[in-house]
């Protein structure tokens, strides 16, 4: 267990170091999501009733599509100079590699969200300082990163991976996204735990399923 944690931490350290030098993933996610938020804002205005209705959807649509761009990069850096083979030649469990990459994606998304959420709050004139809303964002991000890491590994060996990843991934991640949008809408609308609990439960169930099944499938996907 201790050894697995060291491996996960080492992969995270390596990915953060690479990101610090290349700035590929976070800049792509933030710039795309910001653009999407601005377009939503221009389309619906910031003070209308319509804007408050679409605000929860806008943030999740922006994070989802921008996140897919980040996922596309997650394993591409491992294919640079065949380093994925170098990684697979190390005597560590494939689960640890999966959780290392998943944690890297989770951290990239969380940093992007820390930048995006205040901008979202300003553009849509809404308050994001709500523990339940932040919990929903965190849970949604865990699900997105855990399933996304699996599909990113799957898509990276396909010929048109930029197209294949969203085509394969988005239908599967849909329950997590629907749960996140519904629960976020309830909270941003002034509701409490009782209003949002159904959505949060959906996210938690799919997060747990994904965190159990994805590492098992990852070993099969990554082998050849």
């Amino acid at each position: 267990m201790k050894r697995s944690l060291v491996v996960v931490r080492t992969i995270l350290w390596k990915d953060l170091l690479l990101e610090l030098k290349s700035k590929d993933v976070i800049i792509s996610i933030v710039s795309f999501a910001m653009l999407a938020l601005v377009i939503f804002n221009f389309a619906f205005g910031s003070s209308s009733q319509l804007a408050s209705l679409i605000a929860p959807g806008a943030i999740w649509v922006s994070i989802t599509f921008a996140g897919v761009i980040g996922l596309n990069r997650l394993f591409v850096i491992e294919h640079d100079q065949g380093s994925i083979i170098g990684l697979l030649l190390t005597p560590v469990s494939r689960d640890s590699i999966y959780f290392g990459k998943m944690l890297s994606m989770f951290v990239f998304l969380t940093i992007s969200e820390i930048i995006l959420l205040p901008i979202y709050a300003i553009l849509f004139n809404t308050s994001i300082i709500h523990p339940l809303f932040l919990l929903i964002v965190a849970l949604g991000t865990i699900g997105f990163a855990s399933l996304g890491t699996l599909f990113s590994a799957m898509a990276v060996n396909t010929r048109s991976r930029e197209i294949m990843l969203p085509v394969m991934f988005l239908p599967i991640v849909m329950p997590i996204l629907i749960g996140s949008v519904v629960a976020s809408a309830n909270i941003l609308d002034g509701g409490g735990w009782s209003d949002a609990s159904r959505g949060i439960h959906i996210i938690i169930v799919f997060d747990v399923l994904s965190l159990i099944v994805s590492p098992l499938l990852f070993e099969q996907i990554i082998q050849e």
């Binding site: 080492t10 390596k14 690479l18 030098k21 850096i77 640079d80 100079q81 190390t90 005597p91």
Partner: peptide
């Protein structure tokens, strides 16, 4: 050692070796 380098081109040689050293415990 294969045809490919199996190294991360954006990292320094030291960082690459350190990463693999950690992975090999």
């Amino acid at each position: 050692v294969t045809h490919e380098l199996l190294l991360y081109s954006d990292l320094t040689a030291y960082e690459n070796l350190f990463f693999y050293g950690k992975m090999f415990n």
